[in-house]
Design a protein around this nucleic acid. Structure first.
Lengths: 237, 237
DNA sequence: AAATTATGGTGCGATAGCGAACAATGGGAT
DNA sequence: ATCCCATTGTTCGCTATCGCACCATAATTT
């Protein structure tokens, strides 16, 4: 297997590292394909590995009494498992799994911790990423508190769109309903509204993003804040 | 003014520090009384100071288009401003202000950063605290997504109760309604329900906690997770 | 003591989303 | 080509909460 080149990785967190920091991680990055719903981080279990998504993305959810609620989305801009491990906990009550299949670069928690100890610059970048994740989660609170289903759906579509190539998301209404914590029929109606307004185009198992700016009108500012923090602190790709 | 003693501070994050780490911070801690609604951290402004609450607590809110929504609560267990500063951002899109007046120990961001650079053990403790804060915010997402007003109110009361001495909270329905992102009349009804079930006793501008376990029944597991992480990672006080 | 303001209590129509059905449809399997 | 079933579309009554308005009561000021 050819060594990974920083210029060819698609994860923008890895891209943003200094060449020296990337070299620290490179020997320990293992490419891996991911399947829909594949678990990456289990709740309250020691975290053995972290994952830099290259294609596809993962959800971070809180699993509570009934059903799970998504709190964050991590794609090629991030690192799944970063928050607990970088903050010094070997586990977390949250859970992460693949939401859209693709590829990740896996690294053992041990090696990541060692690399971070060697390079404080590396630690700094990753901690700044954790900050953007915290902002994202905070905006998710806002979205649930202030937006109706249609608005939350619009926000979710925008965030997914950022993390894929092209304009077409492959997912079912059922799936969306779980992530947003609402019933499936409600998703169908909300999607129809979005489609009627020319914001998206729905096909079976597919949602095509037609007009991002029209979607952004619905989210009451809950989209874009975390993204701006990322651009400011990590890199403006 | 007498030097602060670690044994007599009430902030449990300061208490949890090693004596050497506390000594690093001590010269820079300035006691300060706080007023209701006093701003501690402004949104998108350089953070000059951080605050260890001693008495009272602060809210972290996301200010968006319309109204602000509370995402977290920081009292004598924590450090206001910890998340952005420890994660390497000099500012944050969120805002923090005093929710219940009292006392804080103020420290300049400059001095805190310097101390953290000198002692990685100090940094580790503070980062673990940031982790617990992240968990708290995640559970706030869950609360908004899965609980009705009564449940969210119960959770909020429990969290406040942890951060005060005694059983009586001084606050108005109006205030609660802003924090929970609902209308004032709804808070009145929810409080009446809680009171009818013997969980609390309401007086004008006052809410007395009568039965914590009955309150915990309403929150669907959204209370306690962050607190358990704190006990596990910082100290079981 | 009277006036004023802040706070809490209550009622009513409107709406969003739930829960639970059932119908229609498209695409993969055989 | 046909069948089957996952997926999507649609409907209906129900409940929580909103938005608004109005009144009651306590605290504060004069």
């Amino acid at each position: 297997m050819p060594q990974l080149q920083q210029a060819t990785v698609r994860n923008s967190l890895l891209k943003a590292l200094s060449p020296a920091d990337f070299a620290l991680l490179r020997p320990h990055l293992e490419p891996m394909t991911t399947q829909l719903r594949e678990g990456l981080i289990d709740a309250n279990q020691p975290i053995q590995e972290l994952y830099f998504p290259e294609v596809g993305f993962a959800s971070v959810v809180t699993a509570c009494t009934e059903g799970q609620i998504e709190v964050g989305l991590i794609g090629r801009e991030g690192l799944v498992g970063a928050a607990p491990v970088l903050l010094g906990s070997d586990r977390t009550p949250q859970q992460s799994f693949i939401q859209m299949s693709g590829e990740v670069l896996r690294i053992s928690a041990l090696e990541l911790r060692a690399a971070v100890r060697k390079s404080s610059k590396l630690q700094d970048v990753l901690l700044r990423y954790v900050h953007t994740l915290m902002v994202q989660i905070s905006m998710t609170v806002y979205a649930h508190a202030a937006l109706n289903l249609e608005g939350r759906l619009a926000r979710w579509l925008l965030m997914c769109h950022d993390r894929i190539d092209g304009d077409e998301l492959v997912l079912t209404h059922e799936f969306l309903s779980m992530m947003l914590g609402v019933q499936r029929a409600g998703v169908t109606l909300a999607l129809q509204n979005l489609e009627g307004a020319g914001r998206i185009k729905g096909r079976r198992k597919r949602v095509q993003i037609l007009d991002r700016s029209k979607l952004e009108q619905l989210v009451g500012g809950s989209y874009g804040v975390a993204e701006a923090e990322y651009a400011r602190l990590i890199g403006g790709a």
